[in-house]
């Protein structure tokens, strides 16, 4: 039976989160609690509270942009039970890991907090000091300050939880649109080729996009293999094409549209242009309305007899 805790503000939510984590760590429900704490420069960073005292360092504010679910893979070994806090998209990431059978639900205790939107840490840091403080205290923030993914979010309420802090926020279904893909589709093939070539060339292949992605959760990544060598070790547009194709295709049908890949890209490659195309096509070809929401069987893991035929298709 899920617990529900009533709160009205972000500050109260943070207090309730700390209290809940403290309770879980005190009564031994979990041996570690995955959350965020304030980092060196004021931005939240991932934090693993291991004692009831450490639970007091947990923070909850509009800057907790980082999905924590992927850290569960580090804790696969062992029997310990793990606590984790998620908002809407964080819970999609968690659900992704669960639906991919990469972490047992029994070893999890999930604290969910409905989300009223996340701000882009980079943009908030760039604000003048006073303005930044005002926004962080819950003041109105311009739409351009929000993370890109909030613009298409249709899951602000956690989809997996054991304790829910606060009331669910009004959940208006957002029609999934892919304006950038539509824009690109309108270009000529040559223009698109040049566009993507520029994107590949910029890539430094640090793998941040892969490593941050909750859908990239294989035990061993084929990109790290030498035999067969799926992607050459040399850098350049050609190998980067291979890299970005493999990365995007391997999460096609499983991408949760969190946009973390794009957010962590240090050279600023708009990676969702690649992921969104798959989401859009899967939605259109196979009639999947919310292709980014984890399902028990993913669109590319199944088929229908009446799927459009390919032969001779151009």
């Amino acid at each position: 039976m899920p617990r529900k805790l009533d709160v009205k503000t972000l500050g109260q939510a943070q207090g309730a989160l700390r209290a809940e984590a403290r309770r879980l760590l005190t009564d031994g429900t979990v041996s570690v609690f995955l959350g965020h704490e304030e980092g060196w420069d004021g931005l939240p960073v991932a934090f693993f509270a291991a004692t009831p005292e450490e639970a007091g360092r947990l923070v909850w504010n509009p800057l907790v942009a980082f999905n924590l679910a992927k850290y569960l893979l580090d804790r696969l070994a062992g029997e310990e039970k793990v606590g984790i806090v998620v908002n809407g998209c964080g819970s999609l990431a968690l659900d992704r890991i669960l639906k991919d059978h990469r972490f047992p639900r029994e070893r999890l205790y999930v604290v969910g907090i409905p989300c009223t939107g996340l701000l882009d840490p980079e943009k908030v840091l760039a604000l003048p000091d006073e303005e930044r403080e005002r926004v962080l205290e819950g003041g109105e923030a311009g739409e351009d300050l929000y993370l890109k993914r909030c613009g298409w979010c249709d899951a602000p309420n956690p989809v997996v939880y054991d304790t829910l802090i606060g009331d669910p926020v009004p959940d208006e279904p957002v029609a999934q649109e892919y304006p950038r893909v539509v824009e690109l589709e309108a270009m000529t093939p040559e223009e698109r080729f040049e566009h993507f070539k520029g994107l590949y060339e910029k890539c430094i292949r640090c793998f941040a996009c892969r490593n941050v992605c909750p859908a990239c959760n294989c035990r061993e990544c084929s990109l790290d293999q030498w035999e067969p060598l799926w992607m050459g070790r040399s850098t350049g547009a050609s190998e980067q094409l291979m890299y970005h194709f493999i990365r995007a295709f391997d999460v096609a049908g499983r991408c949760i549209r969190c946009g973390e890949c794009e957010r962590v890209c240090s050279v600023g490659i708009p990676l969702m242009e690649l992921n969104d195309k798959f989401l859009k096509d899967i939605s259109e070809l196979f009639g999947v309305k919310r292709p980014h929401v984890p399902a028990d069987i993913e669109p590319l893991g199944q088929f229908a007899l009446e799927d459009p035929d390919l032969e001779g298709a151009v």
């Binding site: 080729f193 798959f278 199944q302 088929f303 007899l305 390919l310 298709a313 151009v314």
Partner: peptide
């Protein structure tokens, strides 16, 4: 059922190749 799965996947791929600027023909 192998070719049914293939059909889905390759359908998506074909559209994607075109998106990347590779002549689908």
């Amino acid at each position: 059922t192998g070719n049914f799965y293939a059909r889905r996947r390759l359908l998506v791929l074909k559209s994607y190749l075109e998106y990347l600027g590779i002549d689908p023909r």
